[in-house]
Amino acid sequence: MFIGTVLYAVVNSVILALLAIGFNLTFGISGVANFAYGALYIMSAYLSWMLLNLLELPFLLAAVISILITTLCGALMYRFVLLRVRGQALSEVIATFGIGLAILELFRYLGFVGFEYTLPVLIDHSFVIFGAYIDMQRILIVIVGAVLVIFLWLFTHHTSIGLAFRGIAQDERTALSLGINSDRIATLSVSFGAGLAAIAATIIIPLGSISPSEGYDVLIKALAVCIIGGLGSTGGVIVASFVIGFAERFTDSYISSHWTMIVSLAAILIVLTIKPSGLFGKQKELEERI
């Protein structure tokens, strides 16, 4: 049982990291907190489902198309809404929150609820590792998660766009004076965040089903991970995912599944009390900033 719990905890942690990494990327680069994140996640899942079931496209093609469309939606959202309220935290928060709300509740209103709304697994196969059953999809999630993290690291450290991302993240004004177009970078950051949400949806949704309330859950989980890890820090997100992922799975196995949410909430409150900016937060506390 112990090894099984560890295995599932790893999977759970990677899922959390996948959910949070897009939100964190957007915030880390352009300072936009995309509260429509959960909605974009669900929207891409519904898009895949529609392409798959209504147009009867093959799953991989449907997934790729829906990831691209979601990425585009992120860019459009920045261009047409966020650009006009850029720099005003209040307006950014409310605008993204409003968009997310509208998308999720529209799907609920249209009646997209039920177990038939799910995506197929890529490879239907399961096997036994150290006496624990595990299916191919979960292993795939771990692989995709690892690949994405490595890819993001290579991207931000070794490509010019990635370096521009980091430049903007460190000091927007200096980056501007060096000829980096901060609006274009911010557009890209929001759309990349949306794209990451879509990739996460494609790979994670097959474990469950698509529903609007899942959108809020995804947002909660992403926010929880970012608060604990520290906004804008990729390392923090990964560590926080593993902290929450393991804590949840172990309370689930050894205490009771009822307690998983309490464990997360307690983790948030404890981290906030001890180190408000999160475990690896770059955001300094008030006093330290001039």
Partner: peptide
Amino acid sequence: VLRLRGIYFSMVTLI
């Protein structure tokens, strides 16, 4: 959360 500026307050109150 009051010790932090910006959107932390929004995030925490939401969840």
